[in-house]
């Protein structure tokens, strides 16, 4: 898969911060940071934050989008991308060690597993924001929209990940039920205005 213009790389956990607001929302209470700090460190230590993105041509016809060579029937995405001629597709993941750490946490205690799970979710969301910003610094983009949101079919995940050669660039694979592995992974589409 060497013919495509895919940008990919690894970002150190020290180059961005976990969004604490996001984490509070996920934990459901206003925690004391010293209580949660060790869990944040644990996830940061085992995560490898990888990203990949690429730009594709876009055509909108009524409530369908032609992204690259794939047609997607989705009125919500068509509305967001209205007026754009190209899109960025992107994928981020924090790696399989994070899933292992969460599973270990659950084996030790449900509370530990739950907190690690929430920290890992908030972390990957924060990383997606970071990569989003990195792209938006260079390009004027719309807000990001992920397969599975509203009527944007989850099936588009297959196309998006295949295009990004995601197994090799970011380390994301799909199950038959279109769940991403590792579980702490995010994909999205951004319109280029």
């Amino acid at each position: 898969m060497i013919y495509k213009d895919i940008k990919s790389g690894v970002i150190s956990a020290s180059d961005f911060r976990i969004n604490l607001k996001e984490l509070r929302a996920r934990l459901g209470y206003d925690f004391n940071i010293t209580e949660i700090e060790p869990y944040i460190k644990q996830i940061a230590n085992c995560a490898t934050f990888r990203y990949a993105y690429a730009s594709l041509p876009l055509k909108i016809e009524k409530s369908s989008c032609l992204i690259g060579e794939s047609i997607v029937a989705t009125s919500s995405l068509s509305t967001i991308l209205d007026g754009c001629e190209n899109v960025i597709i992107f994928a981020v993941s924090s790696g399989s060690d994070v899933d292992r750490t969460i599973n270990r946490g659950y084996l030790k205690s449900s509370a530990e597993g739950f907190i690690l799970d929430a920290v890992a979710s908030a972390y990957i969301e924060s990383f997606a924001d970071f990569v989003n910003e990195m792209i938006s610094k260079e390009l004027d983009t719309t807000k990001r929209f992920s397969p599975g949101y509203s009527d944007f079919p989850l099936e588009f995940q297959r196309v998006l990940l295949a295009y990004l050669d995601a197994k090799n660039t970011v380390g994301i694979d799909l199950t038959d039920k279109i769940l991403m592995v590792p579980s702490k992974s995010i994909t999205a589409v951004l319109g280029i205005k």
Binding site: L27, G28, Y29, F31, S109, S110, A111, F114, I115
Partner: peptide, 11 residues
């Protein structure tokens, strides 16, 4: 009380 506390008590 919140979920992590509930879980700790349950444990």
């Amino acid at each position: 009380l919140f979920l992590p506390q509930l879980l700790r008590s349950a444990e």
